[in-house]
Design a protein around this nucleic acid. Structure first.
Length: 263
DNA sequence: ATGTCACTATGGTAGTGA
């Protein structure tokens, strides 16, 4: 079975591209982030025509997460227990997490808050969000044989070598110790970040900003990851990053990150 | 050349988020 995660940066702008990629790559389950639409606006028919079921959570033009599967899609859950709210006047639980069981694997599509700047309330929200997710995820992995995949855009640069020049992020988000601690805490909860296991090389970026010709200059970030519970980690046979998907007109600023499972 | 893109609301351009 092949699972992938992809921050699509508007599913309406790229539904055809996503389906073409699904078919070309032979992906069974795809977790999407930044769909940037409401459930009513989601292009369900495009995916269903290709033989995929869809579960989506989207409140407005911001955020939005989905799971697309051709191996079943059961027990859909929008948001995780104690997922923090954000908003100055009327706080809401944003559309940043959706879970479903696909082919026996509990898949979570996650869009971790950006943080904006270490001084911004969004940064504290990001840390709260990651801590709450870790609490929930620890519970999910408890059951013997539980096969859980936490995949998505983590908005954290775990190592200095996951960015073309870490000094460009001095004073910014993504590289602070609290963010990195929050990211690595999932390993303490029993999860393994399996893309690192299979792609340990430096410079394996998953995102290149649209601005400043970042992609041609290969000024990228590695911020899209897949944490798997012990029983699922044992099934992982490989991982890949489809860098070519960043090429050409109409690309997302992120590329798909793929995890292969035996069976 | 601030070498971008997608969204909304508006009204033909400005604001927001990344």
């Amino acid at each position: 079975m092949r699972i992938a995660t992809w921050n699509i940066n508007s599913v309406r702008a790229r539904a055809d591209r996503a389906v073409a990629w699904l078919e070309r790559s032979g992906t069974d389950v795809l977790a999407l982030q930044e769909t940037k639409c409401t459930d009513a606006q989601f292009p369900h028919a495009v995916f269903e025509a290709a033989g995929y079921e869809v579960a989506h959570a989207g409140l407005n033009q911001w955020n939005g997460v989905a799971i697309v599967s051709r191996v079943g899609l059961e027990d859909v859950q929008v948001g995780f227990p104690e997922q923090p709210e954000f908003g100055a006047d009327t706080p809401v639980v944003e559309a940043r997490a959706i879970g479903a069981t696909c082919g026996g694997v509990r898949v979570w599509s996650l869009y971790v808050p950006h943080g904006r700047s270490p001084q911004d309330p969004h940064y504290a929200y990001k840390l709260r969000w990651l801590a709450a997710l870790r609490e929930a995820a620890q519970g999910w992995a408890q059951a013997d044989g539980a096969q859980v995949a936490l995949v998505g855009d983590w908005n954290v640069i775990p190592y200095d070598t996951d960015v073309w020049d870490v000094t460009a992020f001095e004073g910014g988000t993504h590289v602070t110790q609290p963010e990195r601690d929050a990211f690595f805490a999932f390993a303490d909860a029993g999860y393994t970040e399996v893309t690192r296991v299979h792609l340990p090389q430096e410079g394996k970026y998953t995102y290149w900003d649209y601005q400043q010709l970042c992609f041609p200059k290969n000024k990228g970030l590695r911020i899209d990851f897949a944490y798997t519970s012990p029983a699922l980690t044992a099934r992982v046979t490989g991982a890949s990053i489809d860098r070519d998907e960043r090429k050409g007109k109409g690309a997302s600023d992120h590329v798909p990150v793929v995890v292969d499972l035996e069976g």
